[in-house]
Amino acid sequence: MAKYKIVHYLNQFFAGIGGEEMADYKPELREGVVGPGGALAAALGPDYEIVATVICGDNYFGENLDEATDTIIEMVKKYEPDVFVAGPAFNAGRYGVACGTICKAVEERLGIPVLTAEYEENPGTDMFKKDVIIVKTGNSSADMKNAIPTMAKLIKKMATGEEILGPAVEGYHERGIRVNYFAEKRGSERGLEMLIKKMKGEPFETDLPMPKFDRVAPADPIKDIKHATIAVVTSGGVVPQGNPDHIESSNATKFGEYSIAGKDSMSPDEFTTIHGGYDRQFVMANPNLVVPLDVLRELEKAGEFGKLYDSFFTTTGTGTATGSAAKFGDAIGKKLKEDGVDGVILVST
């Protein structure tokens, strides 16, 4: 009997069921190898067995995302595979997104290592390369012969727990994950060598290509300020004395929500700051410098705006991962939207 079990995911086309006309095909489970699974099984050798293949139409998956995912997870689960593999999807867009989606879900929910393979311009690559290892392929199934051995090598490493090396070595799309290593030379020497090349006009390779930050379109302005509810959010680390929720001084993993209902000002006896990135003495003496409750309450009473939201949201901005900040923003935005807030003042130190 083989030592390691694999479950494979294919779309209707690669499973030989049909083309576009069969894209509504519902998830189906077949024992053993289907389609490209044959070549993969051959490349993996006798220690590995593709015990089952899940087939799903691309449109069905895309239009019934949650249901299809749940169904497929159940199908995969009972086999307790060592590795879950999807594709390769090459440049098939819906198939690529489905491979990425199902791989991510299997890894998150079942804790099984996952692998897929796609062309770099497949939208699934950009959407999932951070979450899933995606082997690089050409843009059509003509590249199957190259994709299969690369996939087989990685599947073996995943099954045996062998270290997976960098993207250039292993042939997968760079995931944008920053990993430490000990270089041969120290940073100053590497920097100087880079500078010498740059001054000569010779090619050089930066350690960190500049990231591109995404953008959100500006929200529409508040139309009726007299009846608008305004909320305050801050990254300045202002928290109740004693920091009851243990928000970190740097690289925060959580945010806090604290009531300001009935208060006219941020009292230094009640609030402090735990931000690790600036001299805290001023804000500790007067937290209104970050959460401007004193003036907001006066403006509210004067009718300059409708109502101040009853609590403020807070975290530490310094060294806080953009991924965490995005999650905080999403959670805060969701709550404020539900609670009928119309505009937000976000104060950063």
């Binding site: 930050f213 995404d214 953008r215 959100v216 500006p218 929200a219 529409d220 302005p221 508040i222 959010v233 990254s235 975290t315 953009t322 900040a325 995005a326 999650k327 905080f328 923003g329 999403d330 959670a331 805060i332 935005g333 969701k334 404020l336 939207k337 807030v341 119309d342 505009g343 937000v344 003042i345 976000l346 104060v347 950063s348 130190t349």
Partner: peptide, 26 residues
Amino acid sequence: MVKGIEKYGLPVVHMATVVPISLTIG
């Protein structure tokens, strides 16, 4: 955080000392 909130269609005014960072993050 700004973008996470603004995604919900709520206008956010970012009051920040280091304007370049505010511009960079969007």
